[in-house]
Amino acid sequence: MVRPSPPLLDITRIYAEPAAAQSPRGQEIIARWPAAEVVPVASHWQIPEVHGDERNVARWVRIKTEALILGEKKSIATRLNGRSADFIAPSLSNGCAMACAYCYVPRRKGYSNPVTVFTNVDKIAAHLARHVHKQGPKTEPNQCDPEAWVYDIGENSDCSVDALISENVRDICDLFRMTPTAKASFATKYVNRDLLEWDPLGRTRIRFSLMPASTAKITDIRTSPMAERIAAIDDFVEAGYEVHLNFSPVILTPTWVEDWTELLTHLADVLSPQTKQQLAAEVIFLTHNEQLHEVNLGWHPKAEELLWTPQIQEPKVSQNGAVNVRYRSGFKGAQVELFTELVARFLPQCRIRYAF
């Protein structure tokens, strides 16, 4: 007998800033889990029993399943990007119910990272509408998009999961649906087929994150299986989404060339001509972190056998000042070139927007 998978979300406690709990969006969310205990908190950033306590490592997945946080976005600003999108939009949430072993967000919040929903989405939407209007039409094509300004709306979360919790993501996608000069974009590791009913009119780009299934089984915890993600791609294209691929992170396992060759060949075999015609991808090699490495040893050491390989890694100071580790520069450059050659050979219809 096959046991059913445990639910991604089984909310029993909702930690809420008072204004967030009293807001219309906060009330909608609380009503979705009427049996959950609502716990007032002064700040969504300071909840010791949820994050910031290393003793929570042993309860990592349980906290992600059972805890939800409601707060208000205090700093509403759009930032320049130029890689995954032209701009990074204000976050609709942060944190995630999934538990990928390489996720960078726990480096900031520490030890557990359940979803925090920002309930003042009306202010975020108004800010974005003003920002898009100020840009005017896009007059010069770039690697983000030849015609539209692209706004990443899910930098610190997975919007497909967020859409299980509230209408925030749909509200923002509906905003871009009626915006001819811009489009929303987000990467996802979760297949939420409710999104197929949204009729986005091509104004939302979903980037399905893909990697070899054998690696994902170890590193992509609580995500949709790779086969399910791949099977959803054509359906989302048919439903009116622009669908790109996010080959990320590329983890250099002993069999990575063979594994990626198999995946790319499979994609070439199963994706429809319509999907291939609009297909593009971004390629991001693994960046890791010593603190996250230590955290992972407390709950999922098997993943670190793939992620922590000091013999081919070196320190890197990121743009935000954090000290991380990446594959050694000369070595990495050769592997990036090899990866792009694999894509060109086995999935030639897929344009690579950028790779690093």
Rank of each mutant, 00 (worst) to 15 (best):
P106G: 06
K109M: 12
A184W: 01
F118N: 01
F176W: 03
D122Y: 06
L210R: 03
Y190A: 06
R79G: 13
A97G: 14
N81A: 08
W198I: 06
P200K: 10
L196M: 13
E140L: 15
A89S: 14
G202P: 04
N81G: 01
C144W: 07
K183F: 09
R193M: 10
I206S: 07
Y111T: 00
Y111G: 00
L195E: 15
S93R: 01
S84C: 11
R79E: 15
C144A: 13
L164T: 12
T139G: 06
V105F: 13
L195T: 15
L92S: 08
T119E: 00
Y104E: 06
I76F: 08
Y102I: 14
D145G: 05
A182M: 11
P146K: 13
A99W: 03
N120F: 01
G154E: 06
M211F: 03
G202V: 07
I153Y: 11
D86Q: 03
T188D: 09
A85R: 00
R205D: 15
G136P: 05
E197Y: 14
D145Q: 10
Y190M: 06
R193G: 03
G110N: 09
V150F: 08
F208G: 04
A182Y: 12
V121F: 01
Y102T: 10
K109C: 05
F176D: 09
K189R: 14
V117H: 07
S112F: 06
Q135K: 13
S185R: 12
D194G: 15
C173E: 12
C103M: 09
C173R: 07
A99N: 07
A99T: 13
H127T: 00
A182C: 13
C144Q: 11
V105M: 12
Q135W: 04
Q135P: 02
V161I: 10
P137M: 00
G82H: 07
